[in-house]
Amino acid sequence: MTPPPPVPTTARCPQCGAAIEPTALSCDACQALVHADRLKALAATARAAETAGDVSAQLEAWRVALTLLPPGSSQYRSIHERVVSLSRSLTNPSAAPPATSAGSRAATWTGAIGTAVLFLVTKGKLLLLGLSKGSTFFSMLAALGVYWTLWGWKFALGFVLSIYIHEMGHVAALRRFGVAATAPMFIPGFGAFIRGKQPLATVQEEARVGLGGPIWGLAAAVGCFLIYVTTKQPFWAALTHAGAMINLFNLMPIWQLDGDHAFKALNRTERWIAAAVIGVMFAFTTEGLLILVGILAVVQAFRDAPNVEGDRTALIQFAGLVITLALLMKMPVPGTP
Protein backbone atom coordinates (compact mmCIF):
# COMPACT_ATOMS: atom_id res chain seq x y z
CA MET A 1 0.00 0.00 0.00
CA THR A 2 1.40 3.39 -0.98
CA PRO A 3 1.73 5.80 1.96
CA PRO A 4 -0.18 9.08 1.58
CA PRO A 5 1.90 12.01 0.33
CA PRO A 6 3.32 14.18 3.14
CA VAL A 7 1.35 17.31 3.98
CA PRO A 8 3.41 20.34 2.91
CA THR A 9 4.58 22.40 5.86
CA THR A 10 5.73 25.30 3.72
CA ALA A 11 4.56 26.97 0.54
CA ARG A 12 6.32 29.16 -2.00
CA CYS A 13 5.79 32.86 -2.56
CA PRO A 14 4.16 33.28 -5.99
CA GLN A 15 6.30 36.40 -6.56
CA CYS A 16 9.85 35.65 -5.39
CA GLY A 17 9.68 31.91 -4.75
CA ALA A 18 10.82 32.17 -1.12
CA ALA A 19 9.53 29.59 1.35
CA ILE A 20 6.52 30.85 3.33
CA GLU A 21 4.24 29.29 5.94
CA PRO A 22 1.11 27.71 4.43
CA THR A 23 -1.05 30.10 6.48
CA ALA A 24 1.06 33.23 5.79
CA LEU A 25 -0.77 36.23 4.40
CA SER A 26 2.31 37.89 2.95
CA CYS A 27 5.81 36.87 1.99
CA ASP A 28 8.42 37.85 4.58
CA ALA A 29 11.05 38.34 1.88
CA CYS A 30 9.26 40.48 -0.73
CA GLN A 31 6.00 41.38 1.09
CA ALA A 32 3.89 40.05 -1.78
CA LEU A 33 0.33 39.49 -0.64
CA VAL A 34 -0.52 35.80 -0.91
CA HIS A 35 -4.21 36.46 -1.65
CA ALA A 36 -3.64 39.39 -4.03
CA ASP A 37 -6.09 38.17 -6.68
CA ARG A 38 -8.85 37.48 -4.17
CA LEU A 39 -8.26 40.88 -2.54
CA LYS A 40 -8.55 42.65 -5.88
CA ALA A 41 -11.79 40.81 -6.59
CA LEU A 42 -13.18 41.75 -3.17
CA ALA A 43 -12.19 45.39 -3.70
CA ALA A 44 -14.04 45.33 -7.04
CA THR A 45 -17.10 43.82 -5.35
CA ALA A 46 -17.01 46.48 -2.65
CA ARG A 47 -16.72 49.27 -5.23
CA ALA A 48 -19.65 47.85 -7.19
CA ALA A 49 -21.69 47.70 -3.98
CA GLU A 50 -20.72 51.29 -3.23
CA THR A 51 -21.99 52.36 -6.64
CA ALA A 52 -25.24 50.47 -5.98
CA GLY A 53 -25.51 52.09 -2.55
CA ASP A 54 -25.50 48.71 -0.79
CA VAL A 55 -23.68 49.34 2.50
CA SER A 56 -24.16 45.77 3.78
CA ALA A 57 -22.56 44.28 0.67
CA GLN A 58 -19.64 46.73 0.96
CA LEU A 59 -19.13 45.73 4.57
CA GLU A 60 -19.31 42.06 3.69
CA ALA A 61 -16.60 42.36 1.04
CA TRP A 62 -14.26 44.52 3.13
CA ARG A 63 -14.65 42.28 6.18
CA VAL A 64 -13.57 39.25 4.15
CA ALA A 65 -10.65 41.28 2.79
CA LEU A 66 -9.51 42.00 6.36
CA THR A 67 -9.11 38.28 7.01
CA LEU A 68 -6.71 38.04 4.04
CA LEU A 69 -4.42 40.95 5.01
CA PRO A 70 -1.58 41.03 7.57
CA PRO A 71 -3.00 42.91 10.58
CA GLY A 72 -0.01 45.26 10.78
CA SER A 73 -0.18 46.38 7.15
CA SER A 74 -1.38 49.80 6.07
CA GLN A 75 -3.93 48.16 3.77
CA TYR A 76 -5.42 46.39 6.80
CA ARG A 77 -5.62 49.65 8.73
CA SER A 78 -7.24 51.51 5.82
CA ILE A 79 -9.87 48.85 5.27
CA HIS A 80 -10.55 48.55 8.99
CA GLU A 81 -11.15 52.30 9.14
CA ARG A 82 -13.50 51.98 6.16
CA VAL A 83 -15.42 49.17 7.87
CA VAL A 84 -15.80 51.26 11.03
CA SER A 85 -16.99 54.24 8.98
CA LEU A 86 -19.54 52.16 7.04
CA SER A 87 -20.71 50.47 10.22
CA ARG A 88 -21.24 53.87 11.87
CA SER A 89 -23.30 54.97 8.86
CA LEU A 90 -25.68 52.11 9.67
CA THR A 91 -25.76 52.50 13.45
CA ASN A 92 -25.93 56.28 13.35
CA PRO A 93 -27.26 57.38 9.94
CA SER A 94 -27.27 61.08 10.89
CA ALA A 95 -23.49 60.99 11.45
CA ALA A 96 -22.60 59.68 8.02
CA PRO A 97 -25.59 59.22 5.75
CA PRO A 98 -25.05 56.25 3.43
CA ALA A 99 -26.17 56.27 -0.14
CA THR A 100 -29.76 55.20 -0.54
CA SER A 101 -29.86 51.43 -0.72
CA ALA A 102 -31.72 49.59 -3.39
CA GLY A 103 -34.08 48.21 -0.76
CA SER A 104 -34.95 51.56 0.81
CA ARG A 105 -35.26 53.19 -2.60
CA ALA A 106 -37.86 50.63 -3.52
CA ALA A 107 -39.59 51.27 -0.22
CA THR A 108 -39.84 54.98 -1.01
CA TRP A 109 -41.66 54.17 -4.21
CA THR A 110 -44.02 51.63 -2.86
CA GLY A 111 -44.89 53.46 0.33
CA ALA A 112 -45.62 52.11 3.77
CA ILE A 113 -47.55 49.04 2.64
CA GLY A 114 -44.80 48.17 0.23
CA THR A 115 -42.25 48.47 3.03
CA ALA A 116 -44.26 46.12 5.22
CA VAL A 117 -44.63 43.59 2.40
CA LEU A 118 -40.93 43.91 1.58
CA PHE A 119 -40.06 43.34 5.24
CA LEU A 120 -42.22 40.23 5.49
CA VAL A 121 -40.90 38.81 2.22
CA THR A 122 -37.22 39.43 2.98
CA LYS A 123 -37.37 38.43 6.66
CA GLY A 124 -39.64 35.48 5.88
CA LYS A 125 -37.10 34.32 3.33
CA LEU A 126 -34.36 34.66 5.93
CA LEU A 127 -36.41 32.66 8.46
CA LEU A 128 -36.83 29.83 5.95
CA LEU A 129 -33.17 30.03 4.95
CA GLY A 130 -32.09 29.25 8.51
CA LEU A 131 -34.22 26.10 8.53
CA SER A 132 -32.48 24.85 5.39
CA LYS A 133 -29.24 24.31 7.35
CA GLY A 134 -28.88 20.73 8.53
CA SER A 135 -27.24 21.64 11.87
CA THR A 136 -30.10 24.00 12.69
CA PHE A 137 -32.85 21.67 11.57
CA PHE A 138 -31.61 18.57 13.38
CA SER A 139 -30.57 20.32 16.60
CA MET A 140 -33.98 22.01 16.52
CA LEU A 141 -35.64 18.61 16.21
CA ALA A 142 -33.61 17.33 19.17
CA ALA A 143 -34.66 20.33 21.28
CA LEU A 144 -38.26 19.86 20.16
CA GLY A 145 -38.12 16.21 21.27
CA VAL A 146 -36.83 17.11 24.73
CA TYR A 147 -39.38 19.89 25.28
CA TRP A 148 -42.13 17.65 23.89
CA THR A 149 -41.59 15.15 26.70
CA LEU A 150 -42.08 17.97 29.22
CA TRP A 151 -44.80 20.14 27.79
CA GLY A 152 -46.40 18.31 24.87
CA TRP A 153 -45.72 18.84 21.18
CA LYS A 154 -47.81 21.96 20.68
CA PHE A 155 -46.17 24.12 23.32
CA ALA A 156 -42.74 22.61 22.58
CA LEU A 157 -43.05 23.59 18.93
CA GLY A 158 -44.11 27.14 19.79
CA PHE A 159 -41.28 27.48 22.31
CA VAL A 160 -38.63 26.21 19.89
CA LEU A 161 -39.91 28.52 17.15
CA SER A 162 -39.77 31.48 19.56
CA ILE A 163 -36.12 30.70 20.26
CA TYR A 164 -35.45 30.24 16.55
CA ILE A 165 -36.97 33.63 15.68
CA HIS A 166 -34.86 35.23 18.42
CA GLU A 167 -31.68 33.73 16.96
CA MET A 168 -32.59 34.75 13.42
CA GLY A 169 -32.90 38.31 14.72
CA HIS A 170 -29.19 38.14 15.50
CA VAL A 171 -28.49 36.62 12.08
CA ALA A 172 -30.43 39.41 10.35
CA ALA A 173 -28.48 42.07 12.26
CA LEU A 174 -25.18 40.40 11.44
CA ARG A 175 -26.11 40.24 7.76
CA ARG A 176 -26.98 43.92 7.82
CA PHE A 177 -23.43 44.62 9.00
CA GLY A 178 -21.97 42.26 6.41
CA VAL A 179 -20.79 39.71 8.97
CA ALA A 180 -20.98 36.05 8.04
CA ALA A 181 -22.64 33.95 10.75
CA THR A 182 -23.13 30.30 11.55
CA ALA A 183 -26.63 28.87 11.41
CA PRO A 184 -28.45 28.71 14.78
CA MET A 185 -27.54 25.64 16.82
CA PHE A 186 -29.97 24.43 19.50
CA ILE A 187 -28.91 23.00 22.84
CA PRO A 188 -31.90 21.45 24.60
CA GLY A 189 -32.50 23.14 27.94
CA PHE A 190 -30.03 25.91 27.20
CA GLY A 191 -31.52 27.63 24.19
CA ALA A 192 -29.64 28.21 20.97
CA PHE A 193 -26.71 30.20 19.75
CA ILE A 194 -25.13 31.59 16.61
CA ARG A 195 -21.58 32.77 16.04
CA GLY A 196 -20.31 35.59 13.87
CA LYS A 197 -17.41 34.47 11.71
CA GLN A 198 -15.69 37.84 11.77
CA PRO A 199 -15.13 40.24 14.67
CA LEU A 200 -17.47 43.20 15.06
CA ALA A 201 -15.93 46.59 14.40
CA THR A 202 -17.68 48.88 16.91
CA VAL A 203 -19.58 48.62 20.20
CA GLN A 204 -22.62 50.17 18.50
CA GLU A 205 -22.54 47.34 15.98
CA GLU A 206 -22.30 44.85 18.85
CA ALA A 207 -25.31 46.44 20.55
CA ARG A 208 -27.45 46.26 17.37
CA VAL A 209 -26.52 42.61 16.84
CA GLY A 210 -27.09 41.81 20.52
CA LEU A 211 -30.51 43.46 20.65
CA GLY A 212 -31.54 42.13 17.23
CA GLY A 213 -32.44 38.80 18.86
CA PRO A 214 -34.72 40.17 21.60
CA ILE A 215 -36.36 42.57 19.11
CA TRP A 216 -37.33 39.69 16.82
CA GLY A 217 -38.19 37.59 19.88
CA LEU A 218 -40.46 40.38 21.07
CA ALA A 219 -42.16 40.44 17.67
CA ALA A 220 -42.83 36.70 18.03
CA ALA A 221 -44.22 37.17 21.55
CA VAL A 222 -46.43 40.04 20.41
CA GLY A 223 -47.67 37.84 17.56
CA CYS A 224 -48.64 35.15 20.10
CA PHE A 225 -50.30 37.81 22.24
CA LEU A 226 -52.39 39.07 19.32
CA ILE A 227 -53.50 35.52 18.54
CA TYR A 228 -54.43 35.08 22.20
CA VAL A 229 -56.45 38.29 22.20
CA THR A 230 -58.27 37.08 19.07
CA THR A 231 -58.81 33.43 20.03
CA LYS A 232 -58.80 33.57 23.88
CA GLN A 233 -57.00 30.22 23.90
CA PRO A 234 -54.78 29.91 27.05
CA PHE A 235 -52.11 28.14 24.99
CA TRP A 236 -51.23 31.40 23.24
CA ALA A 237 -51.10 33.28 26.56
CA ALA A 238 -48.66 30.68 27.90
CA LEU A 239 -46.52 30.96 24.77
CA THR A 240 -46.55 34.76 25.01
CA HIS A 241 -45.39 34.52 28.63
CA ALA A 242 -42.64 32.01 27.82
CA GLY A 243 -41.43 34.04 24.82
CA ALA A 244 -41.34 37.23 26.89
CA MET A 245 -39.45 35.48 29.68
CA ILE A 246 -36.67 34.05 27.50
CA ASN A 247 -36.13 37.41 25.84
CA LEU A 248 -36.17 39.33 29.13
CA PHE A 249 -33.72 36.81 30.58
CA ASN A 250 -31.41 37.50 27.65
CA LEU A 251 -31.40 41.21 28.48
CA MET A 252 -29.31 40.54 31.60
CA PRO A 253 -26.12 42.60 31.13
CA ILE A 254 -23.71 39.81 32.00
CA TRP A 255 -21.44 37.21 30.41
CA GLN A 256 -22.34 36.80 26.71
CA LEU A 257 -26.05 37.51 27.05
CA ASP A 258 -27.67 40.05 24.73
CA GLY A 259 -27.98 42.69 27.46
CA ASP A 260 -24.22 42.62 27.96
CA HIS A 261 -23.62 43.42 24.30
CA ALA A 262 -26.05 46.33 24.54
CA PHE A 263 -24.47 47.72 27.71
CA LYS A 264 -21.03 47.85 26.09
CA ALA A 265 -22.32 50.69 23.90
CA LEU A 266 -23.97 52.65 26.72
CA ASN A 267 -22.19 55.36 28.69
CA ARG A 268 -22.57 55.62 32.45
CA THR A 269 -25.59 57.96 32.38
CA GLU A 270 -27.39 55.74 29.89
CA ARG A 271 -26.67 52.68 32.07
CA TRP A 272 -28.28 54.43 35.04
CA ILE A 273 -31.29 55.35 32.90
CA ALA A 274 -31.60 51.71 31.82
CA ALA A 275 -31.40 50.61 35.47
CA ALA A 276 -34.08 53.17 36.39
CA VAL A 277 -36.40 51.88 33.65
CA ILE A 278 -35.94 48.34 34.98
CA GLY A 279 -36.69 49.59 38.51
CA VAL A 280 -39.88 51.33 37.40
CA MET A 281 -41.03 48.23 35.53
CA PHE A 282 -40.34 46.07 38.59
CA ALA A 283 -42.42 48.42 40.74
CA PHE A 284 -45.22 48.08 38.20
CA THR A 285 -45.05 44.34 37.52
CA THR A 286 -43.19 42.84 40.56
CA GLU A 287 -41.60 40.38 38.14
CA GLY A 288 -38.67 38.71 39.97
CA LEU A 289 -36.55 38.38 36.83
CA LEU A 290 -36.41 42.18 36.63
CA ILE A 291 -34.60 42.29 39.98
CA LEU A 292 -31.80 40.23 38.51
CA VAL A 293 -31.62 42.34 35.36
CA GLY A 294 -31.76 45.48 37.50
CA ILE A 295 -29.00 44.43 39.92
CA LEU A 296 -26.72 43.59 37.03
CA ALA A 297 -27.55 46.91 35.34
CA VAL A 298 -26.61 48.81 38.52
CA VAL A 299 -23.34 46.84 38.76
CA GLN A 300 -22.62 47.77 35.13
CA ALA A 301 -23.47 51.41 35.85
CA PHE A 302 -20.82 51.50 38.59
CA ARG A 303 -18.22 49.98 36.29
CA ASP A 304 -16.19 51.95 33.77
CA ALA A 305 -18.08 52.59 30.56
CA PRO A 306 -15.40 52.88 27.88
CA ASN A 307 -17.81 54.22 25.25
CA VAL A 308 -18.23 57.70 26.74
CA GLU A 309 -20.15 59.02 23.74
CA GLY A 310 -22.88 56.48 24.46
CA ASP A 311 -25.50 55.07 22.13
CA ARG A 312 -28.96 56.56 22.42
CA THR A 313 -30.50 54.12 19.95
CA ALA A 314 -29.24 51.15 21.98
CA LEU A 315 -30.68 52.72 25.15
CA ILE A 316 -34.08 53.30 23.50
CA GLN A 317 -34.13 49.75 22.14
CA PHE A 318 -33.09 48.26 25.50
CA ALA A 319 -35.62 50.31 27.49
CA GLY A 320 -38.39 49.57 24.97
CA LEU A 321 -37.67 45.86 25.21
CA VAL A 322 -37.68 45.90 29.02
CA ILE A 323 -41.00 47.77 29.12
CA THR A 324 -42.85 45.66 26.56
CA LEU A 325 -41.46 42.30 27.66
CA ALA A 326 -42.22 43.05 31.33
CA LEU A 327 -45.78 44.02 30.40
CA LEU A 328 -46.21 40.82 28.40
CA MET A 329 -44.94 38.81 31.38
CA LYS A 330 -47.44 40.51 33.66
CA MET A 331 -50.28 39.27 31.49
CA PRO A 332 -52.12 36.52 33.43
CA VAL A 333 -52.05 33.05 31.93
CA PRO A 334 -55.42 31.32 32.44
CA GLY A 335 -55.09 28.15 34.50
CA THR A 336 -51.92 29.20 36.32
CA PRO A 337 -51.68 30.70 39.82
Partner: peptide, 19 residues
Protein backbone atom coordinates in the same frame (compact mmCIF):
# COMPACT_ATOMS: atom_id res chain seq x y z
CA UNK B 1 -10.11 53.25 -1.18
CA UNK B 2 -8.94 53.65 -4.79
CA UNK B 3 -5.36 54.34 -3.68
CA UNK B 4 -4.98 50.87 -2.15
CA UNK B 5 -2.95 48.29 -3.97
CA UNK B 6 -3.11 44.60 -3.19
CA UNK B 7 0.12 43.30 -4.72
CA UNK B 8 2.41 43.89 -1.75
CA UNK B 9 1.81 44.44 1.95
CA UNK B 10 2.81 47.93 3.04
CA UNK B 11 3.97 48.57 6.55
CA UNK B 12 4.40 52.34 6.27
CA UNK B 13 7.54 54.30 6.99
CA UNK B 14 7.60 53.03 10.57
CA UNK B 15 7.59 49.41 9.40
CA UNK B 16 5.89 46.64 11.35
CA UNK B 17 4.37 47.47 14.75
CA UNK B 18 5.00 45.07 17.63
CA UNK B 19 1.70 43.60 18.86
Amino acid sequence: MDELQFDRAEFGTAGRICT
